[in-house]
Structures are given as structure tokens and as C-alpha cells.
Nucleic acid binder design. Structure first.
Length: 865
RNA sequence: GGGCAGUUAGCUCAGUUGGUAGAGCGCUUCGUUUACACCGAAGAUGUCACAGGUUCAAGUCCUGUACUGCCCACCA
């Protein structure tokens, strides 16, 4: 016999090892079964998995296990992401601790270090995925920088370059001075901060007068190449065409007109700094202004900044202001809130920087990706995200894909030292394709990490080779990921997938929400509110954590994880454990037939409810409403199977039905609780693994409305008696006699059949079924609608309590009655509402009226005692 | 500035064809009767954010307001 408590620790390890060893997770590319495919969003190899990973893994594994049991040819392909800048930063931090740096090591040695890191943490992550119970196909495990992925990346780059969808050029891009690399627009997070707006006088070249401009970044004025005013601004009409002398470095710059200027803001005159501001860059292009950078890669003032050279940008700001003050050119200062861009990876304030970078031309790629969602070919769940997707895609800007870091896919472009032209090739070239020179150097930059991620749905299947996997498993079925990477990843997979495979990479995009703490805050180490999934698993087991995540994963809503909630579901796991324990104590019998007229009503009832639950759980899963599925399964298991059926079976045991229901239930629960269900399955000892069993399917033959009706009667009587007992504090061990007068013949028959069960469940010494009203005076009467219930007052300890109970019930009924009467008295309701609704109200009115009368009668009896 | 979500019991949240407001946790009372105290039985708790509208009927549909969170854009 099994223990009275479920101890997940060893059991989980044991079954995972068993499943993996038996290769139950392996997909078959020769199978003729319908495929169901999920490409796991590859976690970054930066460290350890957190609750967000737990959530996504549990959702995916739930769908995967369900579909596998439903008979699909399932592929869940695992892998990890090299996570360019993120990983490089982590390793650089390690190096800094050891007193060295990537520059000291050099490119090659540094990359070796990162690979070591990848091995160590990559493996740890995969072990963690195993502890979640993830049933992914490890034989197909991939890494975004493995050989095949690299081949795919190169191929894509070359083809896009040939199609002129990748180009190289000089533009203003976002630059992180700490990472010393370009980053894409998406990698910049804007934070509102209070700062200052300074008014600075720019003296006119002609000797007298000045023009005042406002700026939040005085240090960049050293790179100013013009002053702009609005063409319609009368205040400055006479200034246009003249020149000012840029303070501090005395450069002569023109006063120009441009519609971009907002006359109402500041002084109405703007300094134009094309090298350090995106808008100014555009203005500069319109007016053919020079682009002057005054900052270097590290964010320090460079050779163009005269005396300020070498100063950090923030120190330079102070110095510039001080000097302006000294010269009497600082006209004013006011506080001003502005949003400042920060590097997503290291939180450093980013700089717009003028440099040569590689870009993907996105508009032509975005168009079909928009269409795929618009047409319904790809469905985004929850639907509300589609709007966000469209908005971004329709306003998409070219994607800066080059990064000045070392960890990543090196750009397959070679620069010729002789003819200065570029050779782009999927195989390392030996000579320049233009002038045949051998003096060629590979571009030092690497690609944005999302470039390789964008290819994930097909690079993982062997593309560009025409593999069997590719044929069988592309496109995938579901892309399950966080909404936070909708643009970073999903949008780009859509573009690349459609472009290269001619088909969108997935049919459904299921976006889950963020995992937060109970206050709704993001979990972070600095806040100290992190609940480590591995700690949770250690404490409560993976199944408990899984069920919690699935229950909380309502579409489009954040998951607020609390220890109490996990505990609650741990208790649920234990409940199933003990229900099985109970079943194992019974003799076992062969499986029942669906239709058995001889079968007891209670059995027909539980089979009905089981199959209704099977139907509803499948429907909920089909609709990606996992929380609903878990709720249904939970409710059936605890409130119906355990609370009622097992209790009923103690009166009239029927081990075959009991065993059947349990087995179906274990299978039904398996996607939500893989470990405990496998362990228990092995005790019921059926097949090699519950994983291989078919998922329960709804069978109408089990549905029996009359049985349901009958159990409703039974429950109502039991609940009523229990309520009276409870309110009067009758000890559970005390048996009391109860009489009951049924309203009709059918009810009488039901009561006769269920007499014993009612007695046992309500602790009734004898349930007397009456033909007439009883004579005895000290009877307390209640009514459950279809029968009157009589309990001897002498059995009750507390008449005061009983009085209170009755008064309370009376009050409630009175309120209900008023509502119904009001409704029924309105002609509009009676004439316009559907007949059934009116009928229902009438029936309720009759029932409640009668009940009210009974209660009043009862109450008066108590008063007379 | 634009957009998206949310506001329901003490807490965390369910609630889709509009028709009697639910769950878990917590709380109160009782309790070891054939699995389970990680348990059982009973109980209490609601202006469904606010204001209008549609409807016989609104937590649910429409409009507006407030507050919270997030996203995008802009901010000299």
C-alpha cells in the first residue's frame, strides 16, 4: 500500500529518467499521424531559469502531452539562445571580477571563455527544464549558434543581401556607450526623468545681437551645424540666412528655416545637431548639413570638441554650462521632464550615434506578415494583441542588425583593402569578388541575436537543406511565448518564415503574461521578491507548481504567484494521491460497459459527470483556456469524485466503476500533473506508461440525465440535514432520526433507492419515508422543494440557533420573492421575455412561496416550545 | 499624444450566445465516521470602480469619467 502522503522528490526524478530513457518524447518524421509542433522559445544561456520560464514550459508541455495522448505526432523542439549582448555582458562581468577584460584576452580567447560559459549554463538550463517535466525531444535539441544554425544564418544573410533587403550605410543609430555597440530601436527602453532645459544665447556673427535656443543637452552643442526656426515665425524672419558663432568653439553656423520647429516651444529657435539627435539628423539631411560627432564610442568627448576632449559626456555637460555662464551666454534654466533612452541590457543611457551599420529593409518583409494575421492564417491569442502587432508592423522601421560585440554570428561580409568593395558570401571567400584581391578582411561585427532567433522555426529543422523534418514539421502549430517579445521575436519570425519558407512559421501565437509577485511587481533579485522555481519544486514538487501556473494563466492577465496558492495545489495533488489510495483498497474488477441498465444510479451519475468533464476539459484546451481546464478537472476531482462519489461508494461499493473513473481521471489530469499521475498509474498497473495512453474522449453513451437528477435529490436532502446539524452544532458522530415526506411518486422512489446512502452521508440513524404529515409536535420542518423534512427538536441542542437559522433563511427567501414578484408583475417582462424564462420564474415563485410558508410554520412551532 | 489591458468577497482571481454572482486562500464553529488534518462538515462576507444609455432583464452590450498597469510615438 502506498504512503498516506505524496512525496514528489524522488518520484519526479525517477519518472523523468524513465520517460527519457524510453524515448517517449521523440518525434517521428516518418509517421503519417497529424503533426503537432511547438518550437520552444530558446532560453538565454545567461544563467538560470525563472518563474517565467516555468510558466511557458508548463503551458507548452501541457499542450504537448495532451496532443500526444490525443494521437498526434508531436514534436516539441528544445534549445537555447546564445543571447549576444546579454551573454557577453555576463561573461565580461565575470572577467572584471577576475581582474581582466575581453580586450586583454583578445577576441579568440574571449570567445573560448564564452563557449565554456555556454556549456556550463546551457546544460544547467536543460537540467532545469527536465525538472519541470518537460517532454521535449532532446534528440533534436538545438542552439542558435550551432553549426546548422550558423549555416542558416549565413544563407539568409546572403540571400537578403542579394535581394537588396540587407544594406550597409551611414546613419544615426542607438549606441550603448557601455556595451560599445549599436543596438536596435527595440532594445532601447525609455524612462521618464526630471531634467533641465537650458536657454543659451548664440551671438550673431555680425557682431551684435543673439538668438536664444533651448536644449536639454548642452554638451552636444559642440556638434551643432545650424540653428533652425520655423518659416512662418515672424520673430526670426530677419535672422534667416545670417550666421551665428557657436559659443565656446566659435564655429560659424547658419540660421535656417524648417517646418519641424515648433514655434511655441522654448524660444522657437532650435540648435541643430545632426550627429546627436534623430530629428536633427533628418533636418540636417534636408539642408545638407555636416554631421559632426563630438562623442566617442565610450561616451567621452572626442577630438571635435576642442578643449573638452576626453571628458565624460556628463562631466562635459557641467563644464559646458559653467563656461557658458562665465561668458554670460547662459540665459536661463528651467526644470523639464524628458524621457531618456536606456540600454535594455545594461541600463546605460544610450546615445544617438552616427556610424556605419548593416540594416534589414523591413517594409517589404512586413507586408505579407501583416497579411497573414489579417487573413486569419495566423491567429494571435489573446486576440487583443493583434492590434498591437499591426500597429508595430505598419510603422516598422529598418532593423539595425550589426553589433560591435564579439559573441554572435559574425557578419559574412568581407571588405577589400584594395578596391574597398564588399564581398558577401555563405562560404568564406579567398578573394574579393570584384577585383580578385586576396587582401580581404571579414567585417568585425556580429549580428543582432534576434537575427538568428528569427530563423528558429525553420533553422531548427535543418534549413537550408531539404530535410525530412522540415517537410514534416514546418510550419509549427503553436508559438507559445511572452507578449514582451512580440516585436523582438514573433514579428521577425513571421517575416523571415514567410520570406524563406513561403508559409508563416506557425498557426497560433499564444502569448502568456508576466509572472509577478503578489503585489504585482516584477520579480527581481534587487527587490528580493524572487520565488525560484527550483526552490518551489524542491518544497512542493513540480506538479504543484505546474498546476498553479496553469490555473493562474488566464489569457492576457499577469500571473501573481504566491506560496499559499502553490500550497493549495500541492494539497490537491495529495488529494488525488489519497483518492487512489482509497481505490487501491478496494477489490479490482473488469472495466464496466458504457450502458449497463443494472448499474446503480450513483455509478451512472459519476460516469455522466466524468464524461461531461472530459468533454469540457478537451474543449477548454482546444480554446487554449488552460485555467478553465484545470479548474474543471480540479472541481470534478475534489468536489464530485472525492466528496460525493467516494463517500457514496462506501455505502454501495462498485469497484469496477470506481477504478474506471479513477483511471480516466488520471489520464485526464496527466497533462496538468504528469509526475503524480504516472506514479499512480503504475500502481493501477495498466500499460507501460500513462503517457502512452489515449486521452479520455467524450462518450455520449455515458450521459444519463435521470441519474444526474436523482443525485441532485439525494444531495439536496443530505445538504439540508447537514445544514441543520451544523447550525445547531450537532456533533458529527451523533446519529439522529429524520423523517421525510416526498411530494410525488418519483421522489418517493428515488428516496427509497437512496435511503441508505442518505442515512450514511447525513448521519441519520433512520430515514423514515412518510405517507402523511407526522403527528408529533416537536418536529422541525424544512423543505427542499420536492419533499418535506422533519427532525425531532429534542435531537437538537440549541433552539435559539435553530430559530436564528430559520429567520436567516426566511429573510433570504423574502428577498428573492420580492424580486421575482416584481419581475412577474411587469407586463413587459411577461410578454417580452422568452417563455422558458417566465416559466422558470413562475415555478420559482411557487416553490419559494411554499417554502416560506413552511418556514414560518416552523418558526411559530419553535416559539411555542 | 496614440493604443491595449484591468477595476467583482479580507487577499489572489474566475465568470462569452445578457436570465438566481463563483473558486482558492484566509476567517468562524464543529469534528479524528473505512483515502486524505496537505482532511472532513457547516457558516459568514459583494453598491461587480463611477455616471449615463440600450433592454422586459446588464458584472456581461454601448458611451463617458476616474484610478492602476503596460506598450508605442514625441518631447529643442
Amino acid at each position: 500500500m502506498i504512503d498516506t502522503q505524496y512525496k514528489p522528490k524522488d518520484i519526479e526524478k525517477k519518472w523523468y529518467a524513465f520517460w527519457e530513457e524510453k524515448a517517449f518524447f521523440k518525434a517521428d518524421n516518418t509517421s503519417s499521424k497529424d503533426p503537432f509542433v511547438i518550437m520552444m522559445p530558446p532560453p538565454n544561456v545567461t544563467g538560470a531559469l525563472h518563474q517565467g520560464h516555468a510558466l511557458t514550459s508548463y503551458i507548452q508541455d501541457c499542450l504537448i502531452r495532451w496532443k500526444r495522448m490525443c494521437g498526434y505526432n508531436v514534436l516539441w523542439l528544445p534549445g537555447s539562445d546564445h543571447a549576444g549582448i546579454a551573454t557577453q555582458n555576463v561573461v565580461e562581468k565575470e572577467l572584471a571580477k577576475a581582474g581582466t577584460s575581453r580586450h586583454k584576452l583578445g577576441r579568440e580567447k574571449f570567445l573560448e571563455r564564452v563557449w565554456q560559459w555556454k556549456e556550463q549554463y546551457g546544460n544547467r538550463i536543460m537540467e532545469q527544464l527536465r525538472s519541470f517535466g518537460s517532454s521535449c525531444d532532446w534528440s533534436r535539441q538545438r542552439f542558435t549558434m550551432d553549426e546548422k544554425a550558423s549555416k542558416a544564418v549565413r544563407e539568409v544573410f546572403v540571400r537578403l543581401y542579394q535581394e537588396k533587403l540587407i544594406y550597409r550605410g551611414d546613419y544615426l543609430i542607438n549606441w550603448c556607450p557601455r556595451c560599445e555597440s549599436a543596438i536596435s530601436d527595440l532594445e532601447v527602453t525609455h524612462v521618464e526623468k526630471s531634467g533641465h532645459l537650458w536657454q543659451i544665447k548664440y551671438p550673431l556673427e555680425e557682431g551684435s545681437g543673439w538668438i536664444t535656443v533651448a536644449t536639454t543637452r548642452p554638451e552636444t552643442m559642440l556638434g551643432d551645424t545650424a540653428i533652425a526656426v520655423h518659416p512662418k515665425d515672424d520673430r526670426y524672419k530677419s535672422f534667416v540666412g545670417k550666421y551665428v558663432l557657436l559659443p565656446l568653439i566659435k564655429r560659424k553656423i547658419p540660421i535656417i528655416q524648417d517646418e519641424y520647429v515648433d514655434q511655441a516651444f522654448g524660444s522657437g529657435a532650435v540648435k541643430i545637431t545632426p550627429g546627436h539627435d534623430f530629428n536633427d539628423f533628418e533636418v540636417g539631411r534636408r539642408h545638407h548639413l555636416k554631421v559632426i560627432s563630438v562623442l566617442d564610442a565610450k561616451g567621452k568627448m572626442n577630438e571635435n570638441s576642442g578643449a573638452y576632449q576626453g571628458l565624460d559626456r556628463f562631466k562635459a555637460r557641467k563644464q559646458v554650462l559653467e563656461d557658458l555662464k562665465t561668458e554670460g551666454l547662459l540665459e536661463g534654466e528651467e526644470s523639464h521632464t524628458l524621457s531618456i533612452g536606456h540600454c535594455e541590457r545594461c541600463q546605460t543611457v544610450v546615445e544617438p550615434r552616427h556610424s556605419t551599420q548593416w540594416f534589414v529593409k523591413t517594409k517589404p518583409l512586413a507586408a505579407p506578415a501583416i497579411e497573414a494575421v489579417r487573413s486569419g492564417e495566423v491567429k494571435i491569442i489573446p486576440e487583443s494583441w493583434a492590434k498591437t502587432y499591426f500597429h508595430w508592423m505598419e510603422n516598422i522601421k529598418d532593423w539595425c542588425i550589426s553589433r560591435q560585440i564579439w559573441w554572435g554570428h559574425r557578419i559574412p561580409a568581407w571588405h577589400c583593402r584594395d578596391c574597398k568593395k564588399i564581398t558577401v558570401s555563405s562560404k568564406d571567400p579567398v578573394q574579393c569578388e570584384h577585383c580578385k584581391s586576396k587582401k580581404i578582411d571579414q567585417d568585425p561585427d556580429v549580428l543582432d541575436t534576434w537575427f538568428s532567433s528569427a530563423l528558429w522555426p525553420f533553422s531548427t529543422l535543418g534549413w537550408p537543406d531539404e530535410t525530412k523534418d522540415l517537410e514534416k514539421f514546418y510550419p509549427s502549430t503553436v508559438m507559445e511565448t511572452g507578449f514582451d517579445i512580440l516585436f523582438f521575436w514573433v514579428a521577425r519570425m513571421m517575416m523571415m518564415g514567410i520570406h524563406f519558407m513561403k508559409k508563416p512559421p506557425f498557426q497560433f501565437v499564444y502569448l502568456h503574461a508576466m509572472v509577478r509577485d503578489v503585489q504585482g511587481q516584477k520579480m527581481s533579485k534587487s527587490k528580493g521578491n524572487v520565488i525560484d522555481p527550483l526552490d518551489t519544486i524542491e518544497k512542493y514538487g513540480s506538479d504543484a507548481l505546474r498546476f498553479t501556473h496553469l490555473s493562474l494563466a488566464t489569457q492576457g492577465r499577469d500571473v501573481k504567484l504566491t506560496d499559499e496558492r502553490i500550497q493549495g495545489y500541492r494539497n490537491f495533488v495529495n488529494k488525488i494521491w489519497n483518492a487512489t489510495r482509497f481505490v487501491l483498497m478496494q477489490e479490482s474488477h473488469p472495466e464496466p460497459q458504457a450502458k449497463d441498465p443494472e448499474r446503480a444510479t450513483t455509478d451512472r451519475w459519476i460516469l455522466t459527470r466524468l464524461h461531461e468533464t472530459i468533454r469540457d476539459v478537451n474543449a477548454a484546451l482546444e480554446a487554449y483556456k488552460l485555467n478553465e481546464a484545470t479548474y474543471l478537472a480540479y472541481h470534478f476531482t475534489w468536489s464530485e469524485f472525492c466528496d460525493w462519489y467516494i463517500e457514496l461508494s462506501k455505502t454501495s461499493p462498485n469497484p469496477d466503476v470506481l477504478t474506471y473513473v479513477l483511471k480516466e481521471l488520471l489520464k485526464l489530469l496527466h497533462p496538468f500533473l504528469p509526475f503524480v499521475t504516472e506514479e499512480l498509474w503504475q500502481h493501477v498497473q495498466e500499460t507501460e506508461s500513462i503517457m502512452l495512453s489515449p486521452y479520455p474522449k467524450f462518450d455520449e453513451a455515458y450521459i444519463d440525465a435521470s441519474a444526474k437528477q436523482e443525485i441532485e435529490v439525494l444531495k439536496a436532502v443530505v445538504l439540508y440535514v447537514r445544514n441543520i446539524r451544523g447550525e445547531n452544532n450537532v456533533k458529527p458522530s451523533k446519529q439522529i432520526p429524520v423523517s421525510i415526506l416526498p411530494k410525488d411518486k418519483t421522489t418517493r422512489q428515488i428516496l427509497e433507492r437512496e435511503q441508505k446512502a442518505i442515512e450514511n452521508l447525513a448521519k441519520i440513524s433512520e430515514l423514515k419515508i412518510l405517507d402523511d404529515l407526522p403527528d408529533a409536535k416537536d418536529q422541525v420542518t424544512g423543505t427542499v422543494g420536492f419533499a418535506e423534512i422533519f427532525i425531532s427538536m429534542s435531537e437538537l441542542f440549541n433552539q435559539e440557533e435553530e430559530k436564528k437559522r430559520l429567520e436567516k433563511e426566511l429573510l433570504k427567501i423574502g428577498q428573492d420573492l420580492t424580486g421575482i414578484q416584481q419581475r412577474l408583475s411587469q407586463d413587459a417582462f411577461v410578454s417580452k421575455a422568452p417563455k422558458e424564462v417566465v416559466e422558470k420564474e413562475r415555478a420559482r415563485l411557487a416553490m419559494l412561496t411554499e417554502k416560506e410558508a413552511k418556514l414560518k410554520e416552523n418558526l411559530s412551532k419553535i416559539k411555542t416550545f
